[in-house]
């Protein structure tokens, strides 16, 4: 299944894009942080969180409900 992925801040800068579609064969239950670090070795040492449908969550329970995955580097608001 194809899912919309969004990259922010330093992650978008390092990966070189702000969004893409990624095809998952078996996404349910996998560790998403590890998945993306494997996909992009250049972010191996970057600290980040994952949001599934805009809620912080590092795994997917039901792939059919997923509309978006976002990779969020450390926050700097305020």
């Amino acid at each position: 299944m194809e899912i919309n992925i969004k990259y922010f801040g330093m992650l978008a800068e390092i990966i070189g894009k702000a969004a893409e579609k990624v095809y998952f064969t078996n996404a349910e239950g996998i560790d998403l942080i590890s998945f993306f670090k494997e996909k992009y070795p250049s972010i191996q040492n970057i600290n980040f969180q994952v949001a599934v449908n805009q809620e912080i969550n590092n795994s997917i329970k039901d792939i059919d409900t997923v509309t978006e995955i976002a990779l969020l580097p450390p926050f700097a608001g305020g």
Binding site: F8, G9, M10, A51, A70, L72, P73, P74, F75, A76, G77, G78
Partner: peptide, 27 residues
């Protein structure tokens, strides 16, 4: 509110220098 905003809101900050280089800020 201020403490919650710093920890929970996905906002990212690029600190810009005069020579147009930058670093990313981390709370």
């Amino acid at each position: 509110l201020v403490e919650e905003i710093k920890v929970k809101v996905p906002i990212f900050g690029k600190e810009l220098f005069a020579d147009e280089s930058h670093v990313w800020k981390v709370n």
